[in-house]
Structures are given as C-alpha cells and as structure tokens.
C-alpha cells in the first residue's frame, strides 16, 4: 500500500474536495495504483544526480521593472468573479 484511506481523506479536506465513502474507496485504490507504479523510479540509482526543482534546463529568467503591459480595468477584472459589489469581489464573510 502506497497510500491509505486516511491519507486521501486528509488531502481531500485540505483541497476542499468532498467525497462520500464509495468515492473515497475508489480514489484510494486508484491513487495507490498510480503511486505503486511510480515507485518504480526508486529502483534507479541517483547517487550521482544533482537534485533538481525544474524540468527545464533554464535559469535566471527575469523581466525589467517596467509597466509595459497595462493592467485590466476594474470592469474587466471583476467580469470573471462569481459575485461582486461595487469595485470589489464579494465573498462569504471570513471572520466572525
């Protein structure tokens, strides 16, 4: 077993994904199969390989500190929001 039902439950809570018991069972099985398969990589000898954090062989990509691309207008910015009021996005109150 590469992953347990409790692990999946915990991760789903963190990710705000609700699952019923049937789904939990199914996803645990599927994730376990995937992770077991990926374990194959552990068989490789990586003693001489430097750790990497990026798959591209690129580094130090930066832009100048200049206002080249204009920002959105307030109307454009709010257009994709599910709920807005005035110039703001509107969300359920987060403190009590």
């Amino acid at each position: 077993m590469a992953i347990t039902k409790d692990d999946v439950k915990y991760v789903s809570t963190l990710a705000r994904i609700q699952m019923n018991d049937k789904e939990l069972e199914a996803f645990t099985g599927q994730l376990d199969t995937i992770l077991e398969y990926m374990k194959k990589l552990n068989e490789l000898n990586t003693d001489k390989v430097k750790p990497s954090s990026n798959i591209l062989d690129v580094k130090n990509v930066q832009r100048q500190d200049e206002l080249n691309t204009p920002s959105l207008t307030n109307k454009e910015a709010l257009a994709e929001g599910p709920d807005t009021e005035g110039e703001f996005f509107k969300v359920p109150k987060v403190i009590d």
Partner: peptide, 8 residues
C-alpha cells in the same frame, strides 16, 4: 453581515 469584499 454576511460578506467580505476583496481588493487584489
């Protein structure tokens, strides 16, 4: 009151 407003 039920809402908060967000400015990004």
């Amino acid at each position: 009151s039920k809402s908060s407003f967000v400015d990004f």
